[in-house]
Design a protein around this nucleic acid. Structure first.
Length: 575
RNA sequence: UACCCGGUGGUGUAAUAGGUAACACAUGGGCUUUUGGUGCCCAUAUUCCAGGUUCGAGUCCUGGCCGGGUAGCCA
């Protein structure tokens, strides 16, 4: 396999698309779709599907529709529609005129679609099946329907209403639509085979009666189509070529095919792939909803959750998420991706693109004894060593500074390179300083350090060529801005949160230390007025993002991810 | 115990007519460094099992084992 071979490295879905293009199966068209149900917020697992569908469309000169699969009014809300539109767009994908669909009373146009726009068409298709003797109105209760369906190992039995005449079915179905019957009293079912080994084929329900207000169609309908009936029609109406979904719909494919074949309409190919699992987190809507509702996290956009809005607030970039989705690939078997890969993609992007600033999380006061009192210097600092075009900025320096508490040790162990009594280190972009004295309070707590500086090392280079083992970040005391910094760790303590003791569930593995709030951090003055969601690297510490709760009175940062930390690893192995 | 799908280093993937099992992450080590960051180099480790076909099998065949999905008027 050669790197310049343009046909190389297709995943199995792309291989199918490429083959279809080659054989001209769809007249050269590639039309995919991302069809979320607006009943929750999107998460990183959805991002995999979004990147797959929109990515394939982009790579093969096709188009991808954003379509809301809004066929269950009881669970769906406009709030979710809005958040999904925002998230897909934030991830960097476009579907044409995305503003058109924002008004729930207007039909969608451009590449934004709603299943609810097809309700009338779906109804007509259903009538067509009834007329063909392929669907019937059934009066069985939910409980009876289940009993008649049989089990995994036993065949089902025909419903007593299965042999109703076409005319009776037509009449009943129309009256269902008109609202003459109470909820759940009747259903429209496809007439297939109650003994079929695939349970989905045992006369599946196409419509249920539900007198519920729909977020877009209001009270126009009191019958709503089931997924299996609706989804293929949505795909067909939109002339989708490749209908890509997750593995649990594999068993539904025969039914997807059956409906479209019986109707004789455009018939896309359904292709199933494995959904994403990530270590140390949960991905199902149900579990995320529980975390939110039971207050284990602050909301759908809590920076600890794997929702797109949470990742955004945490400081993830769309590019990092897209790169991650590219690297994990696509397959047909369940797997769990190491969260370290996501963080790797994150650091890779942030390293290239984040401006550097200095911030001290746990401040320790340092006084430079031989530095003139009242003097302030403006020193040059590089904004991004990975990007010369980012330029430089000035940072103030004077007699009193803050350094990181953990950058000083009174009795340094082996391999600790940082400041210690009598030891010389470099203050980044400033001077070499040597620790002369340690001031403690009555409890023996270190409250202040006294140092001397070497004026000849201004900017951080020694003219005599002498070396120091480490470089510390610092913030000038007089000019420092106060900030709150929120440190995050994995939400769960176990790789697989579901691995819980008998009788307990994933919430038993919640990490009690997933959030630590530091309220008296010091950051350099250039951060004044930093915009919400803007990203920075705090030198030597990690990547941080301005939280939307930030204000003129209080700067608030979220730690996106730490830098790779060799020292932390050494410490860990020494214990 | 019915039907469907699937098993490649620790993890995620590649090997596209049967032809040297490769890449990334992680882990360990080294070099460079005004971030213990970045970058660069090296190392560890892989085809579920058993037969068969073949000069040659991750790939094809048979049998087994293991994992996942499915009994909503959810999607």
């Amino acid at each position: 396999m050669h790197a310049n071979d343009s046909t190389a490295k297709f995943d199995f879905v792309r291989a199918i698309v490429a083959e279809d293009l080659k054989t001209d199966k769809w007249g050269g068209r590639v039309v995919t779709r991302f069809p979320p149900e607006p009943n929750g917020y999107l998460h990183i697992g959805h991002a995999k599907s979004i990147c797959l569908n929109f990515g394939i469309a982009a790579e093969f000169a096709g188009i991808c529709h954003l379509r809301f699969d809004d066929t269950n009014p009881e669970k769906e809300e406009q709030e979710y529609v809005n958040s999904i539109i925002e998230d897909v767009h934030w991830l960097g994908w476009d579907w044409g005129d995305q503003t058109e669909g924002l008004d729930p009373t207007e039909p969608a146009s451009g590449g934004l679609y709603y299943a609810s726009d097809y309700f009338e068409q779906m109804y007509e298709y259903a009538v067509q099946l009834v007329k063909a003797g392929k669907a019937y109105v059934c009066d069985l209760t939910a409980e009876q329907t289940r009993q008649y369906r049989g089990t995994l190992t036993e065949p089902g039995e025909d419903s007593p209403y299965r042999s109703r005449s076409v005319n009776e079915n037509l009449d009943l179905f129309e009256r269902m639509r008109r609202g003459e019957f109470p909820d759940a009293s009747r259903t429209l079912r496809a007439k297939i085979d109650m003994t079929h080994p695939n349970l989905n084929m045992r006369d599946p329900i196409m419509y249920r009666i539900l007198h519920a207000e729909h977020h877009r169609t209001g009270d126009k309908w009191c019958i709503y189509p089931m997924y299996d009936w609706a989804h293929g029609l949505e795909d067909s109406v939109e002339k989708i070529t490749h209908s890509i979904c997750t593995l649990e719909f594999e068993n539904h494919r025969p039914l997807y095919d059956w409906f479209l074949d019986e109707l004789g309409i455009h018939h896309p190919q359904q292709i199933e792939f494995a959904r994403l699992n990530l270590t140390y987190t949960v991905m199902s809507k149900r579990k995320l909803l529980r975390l939110v509702e039971q207050g284990h996290v602050g909301g759908w956009d809590d920076p600890r959750t794997p929702t797109i809005s949470g990742l955004r607030r945490r400081g993830y970039s769309p590019a990092a998420i897209r790169e991650f989705c590219k690297r994990i690939g696509v397959n047909k078997f369940n797997s769990t991706v190491d969260i370290a890969l996501l963080e790797h993609c994150l650091r890779e992007d942030l390293n290239k693109n984040s401006p550097r600033v200095m911030a001290v999380l746990r401040p320790l006061k340092v006084v430079i004894d031989n530095y003139p009192e009242g003097q302030v210097e403006e020193l040059d600092a590089v904004n991004n060593p990975e990007d010369p075009a980012a330029g430089t900025r000035k940072v103030p320096f004077s007699r009193e500074l803050y350094i990181e508490r953990e950058d000083f040790m009174e009795e340094p162990p082996k391999k600790f390179y940082r400041l210690a009594p009598g030891r010389e280190v470099r203050l980044r972009y400033a001077y070499f300083v040597t620790c002369a004295d340690v001031v403690k309070d009555q409890n023996g707590q270190i409250v202040e350090l006294h140092c001397t500086y070497d004026p000849a090392t201004r900017g951080g280079d020694a003219p005599d060529g002498r070396k120091v083992k480490s470089t510390l970040h610092w913030v000038c005391a007089e000019h420092a801005l106060e900030a709150e910094v929120r440190l995050y760790d994995n939400l769960f303590t176990k790789e697989n949160p579901d691995d819980a003791p008998e009788g307990e569930d994933f919430t038993a593995n919640l990490n009690p230390n997933s959030l630590e709030i530091l309220s008296s951090c010091k950051v350099e003055p250039s951060l004044a007025g930093a915009e919400p969601l803007s990203r920075y690297q705090f030198e030597r510490l990690g990547y941080f993002c301005v939280d939307p709760e930030t204000s003129d009175e209080k700067l608030v940062f979220n730690r996106t991810v730490t830098l790779r930390d060799t020292w932390a690893r050494i410490q860990k192995s020494q214990r």
